[in-house]
Design a protein around this nucleic acid. Structure first.
Lengths: 212, 212
DNA sequence: CTTGCAAAACGAAACGTTCCGTTTCATATA
DNA sequence: TATATGAAACGGAACGTTTCGTTTTGCAAG
C-alpha cells in the first residue's frame, strides 16, 4: 500500500543504494518548519534543501514540485483517526469531523488544511497531481464510507443511498468552510453535522422530484 | 460599486493623468490568452506585460500579484446572471446553478473555475486577498440570497431559515464538485440541486437534535 | 565466503536561465 | 505641475540541471 506520491516511482529493476528514509524525513520536517515560519507560498525548493541538508537533485528526484511534498505530508497525517463507535450516525460523524477539522486546523502541530487548499489549487494545472489527490481522497475517507454504510445497514439512511456520493456530499460542507476560512470551532461542529445529516437522511440518490 | 480590486486604489485624489482603461483591458485580455495557452501556474507577470505591451511597473502599480488579476477577471465575469423567475426554489436554483457552473466551466470562453480555485488557495497566505475574495463572494451571491429569501417568504423554506448560512450551504456542494473536477454536466445539475434542497428544506438553522 | 564491480542514491557545488520587483528615463495627458 | 505610461535595465532569488566524489547495494566471479 504505497502512498500516492511513492506510487509515482516504479519498483527497482537493478541494484544500487536505496532511498534514504532519513533524507525523506528530513525533507518533510524541513517543509513543516518552513511552513510555520514563512508560509506555504514563500517556501522554495532551495530553502527546503538547505534546511534539510539535502541536495536539490535528491529532492527533485522524489518530488517534482513542492505540492508533492505537501501531498506526502497530507498522506502521513491521516493515521490517527479512531474507529467509529457505530452507536448513531450523528455521533460518529461528530466524532469524525471533530478530528478531521482539528487536523486541518493544526491541532497536532501541522495545519493540514493549508496543504489541502494549495494542493487542490495546483492540481488544476497538474493532472498527475490531481490523480494522486483523488486516490488519496478515496483512501482517506474509507472510514467515513464505513460509517455511512453501517448507518445505512442500521436503517438510519435510506436503503438506496449512494454511498460514494453521500461521502462526497458529507465532506463538501466542511471543505467549503475550510476554503472560506470558517472552519467551525469544536462547539459548532454538531451544527455543521446536522446540516449535512438533513441532506443525507432525505435520501441522496432519490430520483429528481417533479417540477414545481 | 467598484470591484474589490479596483477599490484598493479608488482613493486616488491626484489631478494628473488618469489610469488608462485601455491598458487595464489589455492586461486582462493578455491574462486570459495566457491562461488558455500555458495554464495558470505558468503565467508570469513578465509575460503578461509583454503580451499586453504594458510596462511591468504599470502592472505592479495596480495588481500586487497575478492572483489579483485573476480576481479582476472573476469580478467582471458575474454580470450576465439572470433574475430569478420566482416560480419555485427548485427551478430557480437549477437556472442559477446552470449558469454558474457554465461560467466555471468556461462556456463563455473564460474558465472562471480555474481562477476561483487558485484565488482561494493564494488567499490563504494573503489576508488582503482573502478579504477581497470574501467581499466578492458576498456581492456575487446576492442573487442567490434573493432567491432563498423569496422561497422562505413563499413558505418553501422554514421561516427560521438562516439565509446567509443557507446561501453558503447551497454553494458548498457545487464548489466541492468544482474542486474535485466533477462539475456536473447540464443534465446532472437538477440532481445536484435536489441534494442541496433536501438539506435546506429540513431547516438549516434548527437547533441540534438530542443525541441518539 | 570473499572480493570486485556496476548500478543507484546521496550531499554539495556550480551552472545558465527565468522571473521577480524596482528603478530610471523619456513621453503623454490633465 | 502632478501623475500615468511604455520601455529598458538592474541586482537578486529561485528554478531545474549537471557535474563531482562518496557511499550503499546486489550480483557474480574467484
Amino acid at each position: 500500500m504505497a502512498s500516492p506520491v511513492a506510487a509515482l516511482h516504479e519498483a527497482r529493476t537493478s541494484v544500487g543504494a536505496r532511498r534514504s528514509e532519513a533524507t525523506e524525513a528530513a525533507v518533510l520536517e524541513a517543509f513543516v518548519e518552513l511552513l510555520a515560519e514563512v508560509g506555504y507560498a514563500a517556501i522554495t525548493m532551495e530553502a527546503v534543501a538547505k534546511r534539510a541538508r539535502a541536495g536539490k537533485a535528491t529532492i527533485y528526484r522524489w518530488w517534482p514540485t513542492k505540492a508533492y511534498i505537501a501531498l506526502s505530508l497530507i498522506s502521513k497525517a491521516k493515521v490517527e483517526l479512531p474507529t467509529p463507535q457505530g452507536l448513531s450516525l450523528r455521533s460518529d460523524l461528530i466524532d469524525y469531523m471533530t478530528r478531521v477539522l482539528g487536523m486541518w486546523r493544526g491541532d497536532a502541530g501541522l495545519p493540514v488544511g493549508v496543504l489541502v487548499r494549495h494542493c487542490y489549487a495546483e492540481a488544476w494545472s497538474d493532472p498527475a497531481l490531481a490523480a494522486a489527490l483523488q486516490s488519496e481522497r478515496l483512501e482517506r475517507w474509507t472510514l467515513l464510507n464505513d460509517m455511512l454504510q453501517s448507518a445505512r445497514d442500521r436503517g438510519e439512511l435510506p436503503a438506496e443511498t449512494d454511498l460514494a456520493r453521500a461521502k462526497d456530499f458529507a465532506m463538501s460542507w466542511p471543505l467549503y468552510l475550510l476554503m472560506t476560512d470558517q472552519v467551525p470551532e469544536p462547539d459548532a461542529i454538531a451544527r455543521m453535522v446536522d446540516d449535512t445529516l438533513n441532506g443525507l437522511r432525505a435520501g441522496l440518490s432519490r430520483p429528481p422530484s417533479p417540477d414545481t
